[in-house]
Design a binder for these strands. Sequence first.
RNA 1: GGGCGCGUAGCUCAGUCGGUAGAGCAACUGGCUUUUAACCAGUAGGUCCCAGGUUCGAUCCCUGGCGCGCUCACCA
Length: 534
Amino acid sequence: MRPAGGAPIPRPCRGFSPAEPPRGVFRGPVLYLARPHDRARPPGSPGQDRRPWAAGIDPYPARGVSAEPIARLLSLMGTPDAPGPRCGTPATIAGRLLSLRDFGKLVFAPVQDRGGRLQIGLEQARLGDWWPERKYLDGGDLVGASGVLGHTKKGEPTLWVTEIRLLAKAVAPPPEKWHGLVDVESRYRRRYVDLWASEGVREVFLKRSRIVSGIRRFLEAQGYIEVETPTLHPILGGATARPFVTHYNALDHDFFLRIAPELYLKRCIVGGLERVFEIARNFRNEGLSPRHNPEFSMLELYEAQADYRRMMEIAETLIETVARETNGGTEVSFRGERYDLKAPFQRESYCELFLRHAGCAYDDEPRVRAKARELEIPDPGNFAKLSNDVFEACVEEHLRGPVIVYDYPVEISPLAKRKPGEPRIAERFEVFLGGMELGNAFSELNDPADQYQRFAEQVASKDPEAPGEIDVDYVQALEYGMPPAGGLGIGIDRLVMVLTGQDTIRDVLLFPALRPKPAESAGDAAAHAAPGEA
RNA sequence: GGGCGCGUAGCUCAGUCGGUAGAGCAACUGGCUUUUAACCAGUAGGUCCCAGGUUCGAUCCCUGGCGCGCUCACCA
């Protein structure tokens, strides 16, 4: 009888010809080939040759095995006293062999797949013809195993194996089994090891995936459609940041990697798509920090007929909903503090916060300048910017959150609509949590003349991060008429940090930005190539 | 970019007040049918980040470089 969902495991590929060198094993530069048994044994040396290819076993067979998820099997195993429905039934699993505990005629080994770990037990009597296969297995190898589920004397769920096959040989040794991979640089550079060897790392990225799909479900349920806008921009816009520049040969023109998708998404609103969102990778040529990576993911969404009040509701309920879906509740622990993401969030006006923490009005120029000198904040050459620097220095640390800060000065909000009756205030808010900005939103400016004027002021400013030219095409789009709309941006990486309790952005990015490793010289590569026959 | 710290075996780490290095795990050999950091006995494994300098002698001291971490500045 065959296990449900498990195809028979073919016999190891005994027809494999050792005369044909296994591809990729001894060819070209590799990190290391430290396992002595991976090299040919000197003639006359004791013991047996454990290289699978020397025994005619293909170390990289063409086919995998059809396996059941370990997590599902575990959930149906029960305990020795109260066996579950799968206890005693046949099953096939596939995954990474983490280590081997060899008792001679009995071997225990944990096998790990994406969702969990299950111990396999290899007994000589049960394996029969397959018993010799164990000699070709090492910690780190990928294997497929079929057998019968049961428990050991200690109560450990175990697959008592009748057939086992090497699916891919690990010629590089796994990290130390107890400590795992702890060197931070190695963890990021060799994330492919970190993902299976370090506790909890895989779970962070599985959860990140659930968060992103939860966001999509939430927005689609509200009638939003997902769109994709250009990453290569001819003109900077949508934010202030230093860009990456690249050259497109066919047009012989330099393009910027986008710093924000905003202006394209609002063109979609002009075009009548009404509710659009994009989960966009943005690129900003700025420093690295626990909160910053040069490329990062941003959710931006725009909704016709909405304003920033509606965006507040969306921001709160989106964050709350995704937290419930992925964490089962709204309480999170981040950087040693507890937060409750239940909507509605606390709301504070920018002006009042400024007054409360800086001790003066945000537009009281003499006193703001005095405060800036007191805090040793350099003058950016622009009072509105200086005032905001004072805000960030005095207020942001108090924003434990989650808190919505609303009504910003219009000078630092060039794409936001003015508040009715208060032309110096923009209908804009930011969401803060743990002193970190999570989101930014506003009632979108749709007056083309006002927009042109604000672009012109940006271009004229001395700010090196401001766009170098006016996006005339965007202004023209507004001239055709953009409906009143609200827009919201949420930093995906930061939201994932909060929901997974990770302190640094690098721990929620699979491959965070690193300086390229200097290339190994040809001599080094040659030195790493294993001697002996292949 | 500035400041502080780190770089030793495949991994995690000791150590050398300057005389070319150790442990545990991994690997290899032998033993072991209920372990789960298995155990017992043995073997092997190093450009002590790189390059100069000082010295009879440098992994150690000095200078420079490279990489990483923390932190400050900029940014979301």
